[in-house]
Amino acid sequence: MVSLNAVLVISFLLFSIGIAGVLIRRNALIILMCVELMLNAANLNFIAFARHSGSVSGQAFALLVMGFAAAEVAVGLALVVALYRRRDTVQVDDINLLKG
């Protein structure tokens, strides 16, 4: 059987990798993928606690989070495409219009 702690450790490590990716990468696409990874880590926690408490609410909410992630990806990729069209780059360091 799976122990709750194993799930929590795996999901915590996935979330940490996601944060590290957001902090260290320059490519906006990869930053979006890292955000997706963090949402998935949260989903893993939802499912683990649903399993632990024997209720199905966590699984229903994980499904809602999955739909939310799909919406977020659609808007994020549209932003990346619009950015590429306007500034001809997807590197976040090149987007410095607001820099004084």
Partner: peptide, 19 residues
């Protein structure tokens, strides 16, 4: 018996490859 651990470690490997 250790299916979850195997999949979890492979997911971590995939995430590290990704970043």
């Amino acid at each position: 018996r250790n299916m979850f651990a195997i999949f979890g470690v492979l997911a971590l490997v995939g995430a590290l490859l990704m970043i």
